[in-house]
Amino acid sequence: MTTVLFVLLPGVHLLDLAGPAQAFFTAGDVGHPYDLRYVSALPDAATVTSAQGLPLAVGPDWPALTPDDLVVVPGWRVGEDPRAWPHVGDATRERLRAHHAAGGTVASVCAGSDALGQAGLLDGRRCTTHHAVQDELAARHPRAHVVRDVLFTTDDRVVTSAGIASGIDLSLHLLAVRHGPAVAARVAREMVVYARRNGTEPQASVMLRHRSHLDDTVHRVQDHIDTHFTRTLPLPDLAARAGVAERTLTRLFTRAAGVTPLRYQQSLRVERAEHLIGHGATVEAAAHAVGFRDARMLRRLRTMALPTRPGPPGS
């Protein structure tokens, strides 16, 4: 079971913590359990009081972690005086660095990015935070590349989000990367949230780009495509699964997701192929792995600007 370790500082915002915790907890309900742990960023603290006044019990020590585990630093109430931002202790900074150096992923929500900056993990990397403190983060960590007006960024296993509810988007993205888009979509639906991404973020996953709608018929078809995108999926079969005519499915799907079912499947194939190629596979091997007969179609689709704009919900 993969561990998700939340590192808490005084004044932690409840939703910065609860959003990601709920997403990974819900992943267990759909067959992918996580072991959620909570520790204080300050030494010898048995409780951490949230910004909303709720005392939170924390473990005394960091558990042993593997590269598959995730460390998350939720944000805290920053207040009007930047000098009052908490100082992360030497031991916590070293543990954050060591986990990343060992191949693990570290993430932050809102002002939690400052903790990663104090550990030196933002140097030379893209990052973001809540819009109200982006200037302060850039001033504190001048070697970081602060990206504005995005929900989250990923850069070499350092993942930062804009704050508050965007921690849910961050978590859905990580679940999609680890378990596939179908699992992330199921978690989003269980939580009754949009599976969404900022359209200006170039690393947006296909699933999250095209799930910003509430059409349950289209969601059911997308669930099937997400799970079986490497197979041939004829439109008549998809329409029969949805219980509608082919033309109706195409119209509903395009209106809700912004693309046709075929283009959605092609986008999933290309995204997965890009991942395989990035991990050393040849174009030919990646093409066969995602369901293409040969590499010609994959090469053509990689050079095309596939539509990325989701249709407006309810349009």
Score class of each variant (00 low, 15 high):
residue 266 Q to A: 07
residue 178 R to H: 07
residue 124 G to R: 04
residue 223 D to H: 15
residue 35 D to Q: 15
residue 232 T to S: 13
residue 79 G to W: 10
residue 302 R to N: 10
residue 32 H to W: 05
residue 28 G to Q: 07
residue 71 V to I: 13
residue 242 A to Y: 01
residue 221 V to D: 06
residue 20 P to S: 07
residue 97 R to E: 05
residue 157 R to P: 12
residue 52 Q to G: 14
residue 41 A to Q: 06
residue 259 V to C: 06
residue 177 V to C: 11
residue 139 A to G: 14
residue 75 G to I: 05
residue 264 Y to V: 00
residue 301 L to M: 13
residue 288 H to A: 15
residue 115 A to F: 07
residue 2 T to H: 12
residue 235 L to K: 06
residue 174 L to R: 04
residue 210 H to M: 11
residue 70 L to K: 03
residue 31 G to S: 11
residue 254 T to Y: 10
residue 160 T to V: 06
residue 157 R to S: 12
residue 127 C to E: 02
residue 185 A to N: 10
residue 117 G to Q: 01
residue 40 S to L: 03
residue 267 S to N: 03
residue 260 T to F: 12
residue 131 H to P: 14
residue 8 L to G: 09
residue 259 V to W: 05
residue 61 D to H: 14
residue 11 G to T: 06
residue 145 H to L: 13
residue 82 P to W: 09
residue 103 G to D: 04
residue 133 V to W: 10
residue 49 T to M: 08
residue 309 R to E: 12
residue 68 D to V: 04
residue 118 Q to P: 00
residue 201 E to Y: 15
residue 309 R to I: 10
residue 85 W to K: 02
residue 214 L to Q: 14
residue 6 F to T: 03
residue 64 A to T: 15
residue 234 P to M: 08
residue 217 T to E: 11
residue 20 P to L: 06
residue 231 R to E: 15
residue 304 M to H: 10
residue 70 L to D: 00
residue 49 T to H: 10
residue 285 A to W: 01
residue 303 T to R: 13
residue 235 L to G: 02
residue 4 V to A: 11
residue 120 G to N: 02
residue 312 P to R: 12
residue 111 A to E: 04
residue 149 D to P: 14
residue 253 F to I: 01
residue 183 V to E: 00
residue 93 R to V: 07
residue 56 L to N: 03
residue 310 P to L: 06
residue 87 H to I: 11
residue 197 R to Y: 08
residue 84 A to I: 03
residue 136 E to L: 14
residue 283 V to M: 07
residue 40 S to G: 08
residue 2 T to E: 11
residue 194 Y to W: 11
residue 174 L to P: 05
residue 104 G to C: 03
residue 123 D to I: 04
residue 236 P to Q: 07
residue 65 L to T: 02
residue 29 D to Y: 05
residue 116 L to E: 02
residue 270 V to P: 00
residue 89 G to K: 01
residue 208 L to D: 06
residue 54 L to V: 14
residue 102 A to N: 06
residue 38 Y to M: 15
residue 86 P to H: 08
residue 217 T to K: 06
residue 130 H to V: 05
residue 61 D to C: 07
residue 291 G to T: 04
